[in-house]
Lab assay of single mutants.
Amino acid sequence: IINNLKLIREKKKISQSELAALLEVSRQTINGIEKNKYNPSLQLALKIAYYLNTPLEDIFQW
């Protein structure tokens, strides 16, 4: 999986903590996703895309 979450999140000036709060997950979860240590569920990936107002395929590429 190619993961552009960190790049997109930083472009939008959103911290890991802010995104985690919006998604109701821990900051460690966001960190793990960004470091490719954790693959989000489809539901979480869709929520990330929604809150970042970015197409899912721009954030994650399988």
Rank of each mutant, 00 (worst) to 15 (best):
I1S: 13
I1W: 14
I2G: 10
N3H: 04
N3A: 04
N4T: 05
N4M: 06
N4I: 06
N4Y: 09
K6D: 03
K6F: 06
K6L: 07
K6N: 05
L7C: 13
I8S: 04
E10T: 13
E10L: 13
K11I: 11
K11G: 13
K11L: 11
K11P: 02
K12A: 14
K12Q: 14
I14D: 00
I14W: 05
I14F: 09
S15N: 06
S15C: 04
S15G: 07
S15R: 07
S15P: 05
Q16C: 03
Q16I: 12
Q16M: 09
Q16K: 07
S17H: 13
S17C: 11
S17E: 13
S17M: 12
S17V: 12
S17N: 12
E18L: 07
L19R: 00
L19I: 04
A20L: 02
A20C: 04
A21Q: 10
L22G: 13
L22R: 09
L22A: 15
L23I: 11
L23S: 06
E24G: 14
V25Y: 02
V25P: 01
V25S: 03
V25W: 02
S26P: 15
S26Y: 03
S26K: 08
Q28I: 12
Q28A: 13
T29C: 15
T29K: 08
T29F: 14
I30S: 00
I30W: 02
I30G: 00
I30P: 01
I30C: 03
I30F: 03
N31Y: 10
N31G: 08
N31Q: 12
N31E: 15
G32V: 09
G32P: 01
G32Q: 15
I33E: 01
I33H: 01
E34K: 02
E34G: 05
E34Y: 02
E34Q: 02
K35G: 10
K35H: 13
K35Y: 07
K35Q: 15
K35T: 15
N36L: 10
N36R: 09
K37R: 13
Y38E: 09
N39I: 15
N39W: 15
S41E: 06
S41F: 04
S41L: 03
L42K: 07
L42D: 05
L42F: 14
Q43A: 15
Q43N: 11
Q43Y: 10
Q43C: 13
L44R: 03
L44D: 04
A45Q: 10
A45C: 11
A45Y: 03
A45E: 02
A45V: 05
L46P: 00
L46M: 15
K47G: 07
I48V: 05
I48H: 00
I48Y: 01
I48E: 00
A49Y: 01
Y50N: 06
Y50P: 00
Y51F: 13
Y51T: 10
Y51E: 05
L52T: 04
L52K: 00
N53A: 11
N53G: 12
N53V: 05
T54Q: 05
T54V: 13
T54D: 02
T54K: 04
P55E: 06
D58L: 12
D58Y: 09
D58I: 07
I59C: 02
F60A: 00
F60T: 00
Q61D: 12
Q61I: 12
Q61Y: 14
Q61V: 10
Q61G: 15
W62P: 09
